[in-house]
Amino acid sequence: MTCREFLDFLMDYLEGELPRGESETFETHMRDCPPCVTYLDTYRETVRLGKELLCPADDSIPEEVPAGLVEAILAARSAGDQSPEK
């Protein structure tokens, strides 16, 4: 397995979607290729940072919607007959 193939199948490996034989080939490559292990670690870290830093915790979401938006939504509902469809 080359580094190019390792990177191509990285996500499938991390999600457990590689067939057993290919998984073993993948792991053999990891034992022989520290740069690919580093790539795998930093790929995983990229995903983790995205989830951690961009999914706001409840306490970082503003408590109120901006002034005017609530009124605009309710006015649009009234104007457009947004009653539930029966």
Binding site: L7, C36, Y39, D41
Partner: peptide
Amino acid sequence: LPSFLEDGHMAAPASPW
């Protein structure tokens, strides 16, 4: 995306973070 040498190795090996 990463680029590769003709032998399939990464052209710029990943660095630890």
